[in-house]
Amino acid sequence: MRRLFNALPAMLVLLILVAAWLLPPFLPWDYRIIDWDHVSSPAFTPGHLLGTDNVGRDLLSRTLIGTRITTMVAIAAATVSLLIGTLWGALAGWCGGRIDNVMMRIVDALYALPFMFVVILLMVVFGRSILLVFIGIGAVEWLTMARVVRGQMLALRQRPFILASEAAGASPRFIIFRHALPNMAAVILAYLLLTVPQVVMVESFLSFLGLGVQEPMTSLGILVKEGADDMDVFPMALMVPGGVLVTLVICLTLLGERLRDRWTA
C-alpha cells in the first residue's frame, strides 16, 4: 500500500504524458473542430467525454493537446537551462577565484531582474512563437541550475579524490567529465525534475496573459484562462485543464524533491 502511494506521482506523470502523446488521434473530435450541435455541453455528451467549450470544441482533445504543448515547452526549456546552467556552473566552480567571482556576479545581477517582466518583454518584442517561449524561459531558469552546479563543483573540488586524480596526472577535462560530473549527476537530475514544473508554471502564466502560444494551438495555460472566463456557467472548462496542470506540477515537484533529498543528504 505504502509502496503504491510512493509510486503514485511517477505513475500519474507517465499516464498524463502517454495520454497526451498517444490518445488524440483516436478521439472522435479533433481539438480544432467545432461541433455546432454541442456548445458548452456537459461531460458525457455523446462523442465528448468531458464536454465541449463555449464554441463547441472537444474539451478532452483540447486538454490533451494543451498538455502536449505545455510539456514539450517545459522539457525543451528545462534542457536549455540544463545545458547553459551546467556548463556555466561547472566552469565557474572549477576555475574558482576571479573568474568564478565575475561569473557568479553576472548570475546575481540576472537574479535581480524582474524576470517575469523580461520574459514578457521578449515575447512582446520578438513576437510569439513556441521556440521563443522556451528559449526565453530556459534562458531565465538556468540561473538556479548554475548556482547548484557551481556549489556542487566547489564542494567536490575540496574532496581528496579530485586531488588524487590530479596527482595521478589527469587533465582538467578528464577530471570534470569522468570524476566531477558523474558524481553530481543525481543532484543535477533532481534539480532538472524541479525545473520542469517551474517551467510549466511560467509557460501557463504567459499563455494566461495571452503572450504564449497562439490560437488555434493551445496550452494548459490558455485553457485555464478560457475556463476561468466562464467558470460561473461551466466550471468543467476550468477544472479539467486546471486539474491536469496541478497534478503534473505536484507530481513532478514531489518526484524532484524526493530525489534531491535522497542525493543531497
Binding site: A164, A167, A170
Partner: peptide
C-alpha cells in the same frame, strides 16, 4: 609519476563511482 600522494580521509580520496581496480590503474592510464 615519481612522487604520489596518500591523503588523510581514505574513503573520500577514492571516487565513489569507480571500481577499486580502475581507481588503482588510473595513474597508469594517464
Amino acid at each position: 609519476a615519481g612522487f604520489q600522494p596518500v591523503f588523510q580521509d581514505p574513503v573520500a580520496s577514492l571516487d565513489p563511482r569507480w571500481r577499486v581496480a580502475d581507481i588503482i590503474a588510473e595513474p597508469a592510464h594517464h
